[in-house]
Amino acid sequence: MTSSAKGKLKVATTSLAGCFGCHISFLDIDERLFDLLELIEFDRSPLVDIKQLGKCDIGIIEGGLCNAENVHVLREFRRNCNSLIAIGACAINGGLPAQRNHLSLPLILEEVYHTSVGLANGLIPNDPELPLPLAKVRPLHEVVKIDFFIPGCPPSADAIWKALNDIIAGHEPVLGHGLIHYD
């Protein structure tokens, strides 16, 4: 355990190729956040604005992998977190971004930047600062070991609450009928 000085579990979160819907749904646990904060302390997370990832007990990752930076961040989370949780459809099966997977990447870039209606002299962005897109969008477990999954698009606040409590209590999350959803 990498518990903080206060004896709390350290938790980091991030959104890769996602829409932040899972983070919003996480916040929808509302006042239960106060109970949760008795048990955990946030490390890097868009919720607290800490930018550097430290050693953590749990990493919660929303979104799949659509570019090289996503893979970099995922591997950094894997190195620093004892347990990784994939949250939401995109993290688990690629979700909406993976709807491009049956098309070739050059074809997509061509369509978006060159041939779409209303584009004149369009250029495909080529700045070295931009992360390179992957040929196919991939779910997290195809690149690193993922310990737990919370499905849903997004998972409901109740599903997230139940799963987190199960995981913090040290067992596999069990979502019964009504809480387990892929949509």
């Binding site: 993976a98 477990h141 499905p151």
Partner: peptide, 12 residues
């Protein structure tokens, strides 16, 4: 209780 599809996706 399938929480993920576990295997690599074919994306056919």
């Amino acid at each position: 209780s399938m929480m993920s599809a576990h295997f690599d996706h074919f994306f056919p």
